[in-house]
Design a protein around this nucleic acid. Structure first.
Length: 137
DNA sequence: GCCAACGTTGGC
DNA sequence: GCCAACGTTGGC
């Protein structure tokens, strides 16, 4: 199983909305590198939900429920989306500041390629974020 | 509001 | 196919 990090601006699509909806489609990606990451996702993969611009922190965990399929919001039919469902909110959010200050996390793709909206997370990084988030107990 | 980083576009 | 100009993202 692989791990990922996906960004959303909370004034466009916040974590709370995904929780309220119970599921969602991760559409609107218009960047080939991000799209390639979407295509690499398997059903059951886990992903962090990251709030960009406002908050600038990891707030929750999602699970991929459907692998990459055509994004209906893309008129040119070039890009794909995945379907996700919320798993659990982090007990404590993990801010970008914390990530940059952490010896393990400062090497995350999130830090190195700040504009990439869908990025891979290593197992080591995943576990470290959960430690900082104080979850699971 | 600014700016660095990076992606895209278009002229040649 | 190169690269300058321009647009967008995202952190501060």
């Amino acid at each position: 199983m692989a791990y990922w990090l996906m960004k959303s601006e909370p004034d466009v699509y916040p974590w709370d909305k995904l929780v309220k909806d119970g599921k969602g489609n991760w559409d609107g990606v218009r960047n080939y590198q991000a799209a390639n990451n979407l295509k690499a996702m398997k059903s059951g993969d886990k992903a962090f939900f990251y709030h960009s611009n406002i908050g600038i922190e990891i707030v929750g965990i999602m699970e991929v429920t459907k692998e990459a399929h055509l994004d209906p919001t893309d008129e040119k039919k070039r890009f794909v989306m995945v379907s996700v469902k919320p798993v659990k909110a982090l007990k404590k959010t993990v801010t970008l500041k914390q990530i940059k200050e952490d010896a393990v996390l400062k090497h995350m793709a999130l830090v190195k390629q700040s504009r990439l909206s869908v990025s891979p997370v290593t197992e080591k990084e995943w576990k470290r974020v959960l430690e900082l988030a104080a979850w699971p107990d």
